[in-house]
Amino acid sequence: MSVPPAAGAADRPVQHLDAMPGMAAAFARALAPSRRDEARLPRHAVQVSGYRQDPARLAEYSRVCGFTLRDHVPPTWLHVLTFPLHVHVLGDRSSTVRLAGAVHVSNSMTLHRPVGVQESLDIAVHAQNLRPHRRGALVDLVGTITVAGDVVWEGVSTYLASGMSTPGEPEEAERPPWEPLVPHATWRLPGDLGRRYRRVSHDPNPIHTSRIAAKAFGFARPIIHGMWTHARALAALENRLPASYRVHVDFLKPILLPGPVGFASTAREHAIDATVTSRDGSRPLLRLQVTEAP
C-alpha cells in the first residue's frame, strides 16, 4: 500500500505553467543516462490552472481503454492529464531521478466526486517520499486536481528508480499471497495497442511501441503501458463503481504485445478485487482494488 497523498504542503513552492508542457523533449533528455546515483528530488510543485478537457480525446481514450463515453470521466483519464507534469517535475535540474527508465510499481487514486468532461481543472504535481528499495529508490509523484478550490481527485504514482540510492534501510515489501485462479475473461491485446494508447495518453515512451526500444530495456517485444491495463481493468468494473472511490493497483509484471491475458474480479462487501493474469491464470500481472473513498 502506498502513502496517502499529502496535497501540496503549505511551504512547497509552486511553479505555475501557462499550458500543459510537451513530453517528447523531456523524454529524449531522460534517455541520456544520469551520472548521479544518489536520488534527489525537486522540492517545488508544478501547476497548470484552468485546464480544459478535450472531449474528442476523451472519446478516443474511452474507446482504447474500453470505457463507455460518459459525461463523468474515468479517474485514470485524470491521471493521464497529470502525466506531463510528472515528466516536467522530474525533468527539473534539481532532480537526479529520470522518469524514462523508472518503473511504475504501483498507483493509487481517489476520486472524491464525479468529474465532468466540461469541468475546468487545476492540476498540480509534486514529488515526495523518496525511500530506499532493494533495487534502487522509490519515489511518489503526487497529483492533485481541484475544481474551483475543491479537491476532486488525488493520485499517487510510485516509481522505482533502479540503481539509485537514498539513505536508509529498504522496507520489506510484503506481497499478498497468490493463488492461481481461473480467469473469467480473456483480453486479446493487439500489436498496435501501444500505438493506439500513445495517441490518447501522449506518453512518447518508445518502450510501448518499438521493438528496438523494448529490447534496449530487456523486453522481447513492446510492453503495454501499465496505465492502459489499469484503465482496462477499471473499465471492466464500470457498472459497479460508486460515485466516489479509491483505487489502488500494483504493477507486478510487464505485459508483452501482442498477446492474450486473463482477467478475474470479485466483489466483496466494501471492495472490489480484480486481477489481470497470464492467460491461464497462473501468474498475476496486475492487481487492483477498489475501496470506498476515505
Binding site: 472531449p55 463507455t68 463515453l69
Partner: peptide, 11 residues
C-alpha cells in the same frame, strides 16, 4: 460525433 450507439444508449 464521437459517441457510439453503445455510449448514447448507456447515457
Amino acid at each position: 460525433a464521437q459517441a457510439s450507439n453503445h455510449d448514447l444508449l448507456t447515457a
